[in-house]
Design a protein around this nucleic acid. Structure first.
Length: 110
DNA sequence: GACATGACATAAC
DNA sequence: CGTTATGCCATGT
């Protein structure tokens, strides 16, 4: 089915996000060759085999986790990110420091 | 098929 | 900081 091609492209990009870095839904969509389809990324992650994907490294453009506050998933995602060294400030991640830029795989330490 | 929903993004006010 | 509007489209009812 042609439909899954999009999902596969998305999963591929997500798998490429290095530990300790995050990517936004829109960014993942673009890198997957699906511009303007950020929502599809959310859907793809929802349907994805969580065990085989670093789904927690995908957050929204505001640097926030897009799961309901206080939900198990939200806490899990925050826990995993913090475990990788991603810092939350007032519930937000500074994308300038932890955002994934293709070509640089380590966080900028100032 | 019509309609509502949602792990989103961007722009405008 | 916030709200509204619009684009997007797979899924579920």
């Amino acid at each position: 089915m042609a439909l899954n091609a999009s999902f596969l492209a998305i999963w591929k990009v997500v798998k490429a996000i290095p530990p300790g870095r995050v990517a936004t839904y829109g960014q993942v969509a673009r890198l997957a060759g699906l511009p303007r389809r950020a929502r599809l990324v959310g859907t793809a992650l929802n349907e994805a085999p969580a065990a085989s994907l670093p789904w927690h490294r995908v957050i929204n453009a505001q640097g926030r986790i897009s799961l309901p506050p206080n939900s198990p998933g939200q806490r899990e995602q925050r826990r995993r990110l913090r475990e990788e060294g991603v810092v939350f400030v007032r519930g937000r991640v500074d994308l300038d420091r932890f955002g994934w830029r293709a070509g640089s795989d380590s966080p900028l330490l100032d």
